[in-house]
């Protein structure tokens, strides 16, 4: 490894409006968007990114920096409205937001479990999502909360569910002229709750494995459940079939144990320097059990 930070030369662009940025994306080749740069620069140093001619810094675009409740339909919000996150809002800016902490505690927890303060002061949730790593911590609860992404280019806007956004490690739905311009977290209904659990080697570290759970409760029944997991598949994984299969079922310890076993059987994790395949699979069921119990309790449910 060279001591040089970046391996190749590039031009640095710093548009100040979204329109300008979209124009650059439409007209120039080999452009990489820079938000916090905490992933991008590392990948440029390691050379694990395709050739870059232009680095486009979007931090100077004022209109993209926000993190707040909003009720505009176009961002994909539901009846209750949504919490909207702009692409340059930093992780700490998001985590410190009172509405987010109140309405999406599992999202806040996942963000605060990322890296250390200095990285969170620079890094963004949009960057975390667009980097499309299977470990992406902020994506895990966001999938559970049903996040919707707005992708925009000069050709127009489209809304994509977060779980449909990922295609593989580092690969996403984004066309080369598109950028992510909004993340909408639909405000959850009453009687719902969520949980986020992460296992890492030392405290501020990339996850060995992580889990998010969202449950909407109807008395003692599960009305709706969404489970997502990090670091167990080539992409942040929405455990769709098993989650959906829980709708309408009575919540109890047997169901929890059975669900955990089903998830464990369905996973095909890999071994890497962080941990091995067997361990990931083995403790996935422990995480699912813990997560289901926690989310259920957070939804006001009781467990016998």
């Amino acid at each position: 490894m060279g001591s040089r930070i970046l391996l190749s030369d590039f031009a640095y662009l710093a548009p100040t409006t979204l329109a300008e940025a979209l124009q650059i994306l439409a007209e120039k080749q080999a452009v990489k968007i820079l938000a916090g740069g905490t992933d991008l620069l590392l990948r440029m140093k390691l050379g694990t990114i395709s050739h870059v001619d232009y680095v486009m810094d979007i931090k100077h675009i004022k209109e993209l920096n926000y993190a707040c409740l909003c009720d505009e339909k176009q961002c994909g919000s539901t009846a209750n409205g949504a919490f909207c996150i702009g692409p340059t809002a930093t992780l700490n800016q998001i985590a410190k937001n009172g509405d987010l902490s109140r309405l999406f505690p599992a999202q806040r927890e996942a963000i605060l479990a990322m890296a250390a303060t200095s990285v969170r002061n620079r890094g963004t949730m949009a960057g975390n999502i667009c980097n499309a790593s299977p470990v992406a911590d902020s994506a895990i609860p966001a999938i559970c909360y049903g996040a919707a992404l707005t992708l925009q280019s000069r050709r127009g806007k489209r809304i994509v569910a977060l779980e449909d956004f990922f295609r593989g490690p580092g690969e996403t739905e984004l066309e080369k002229d598109e950028m992510l311009v909004n993340i909408a977290l639909p405000v959850p209904p009453a009687d719902s709750g969520a949980a986020f659990i992460k296992k890492s080697r030392v405290k501020p570290d990339i996850a060995k494995i992580s889990l998010g759970v969202f449950i909407e409760r109807d008395g003692t029944l599960i009305k709706r459940c969404r489970i997502a997991m990090g670091s167990v598949a080539p992409l942040p994984l929405y455990v769709q079939k098993i989650s959906e299969g829980l709708a309408g079922l009575e919540m109890n310890e047997q169901l929890i144990a059975k669900t955990a076993q089903m998830v464990k059987a369905a996973l095909k994790p890999i071994s890497d320097l962080r941990t091995n395949q067997e361990y990931r699979r083995a403790i996935s069921s422990v995480l699912v059990e813990e997560g289901l119990r926690l989310a259920w309790r957070n939804a006001g449910g009781e467990l016998k």
Partner: peptide, 16 residues
């Protein structure tokens, strides 16, 4: 040495 950086060779942090 497969763990040849501080992203892979992890020393305890203040929180640990």
């Amino acid at each position: 040495t497969r763990a040849n950086s501080f992203a892979t060779y992890l020393i305890p942090t203040a929180a640990d």
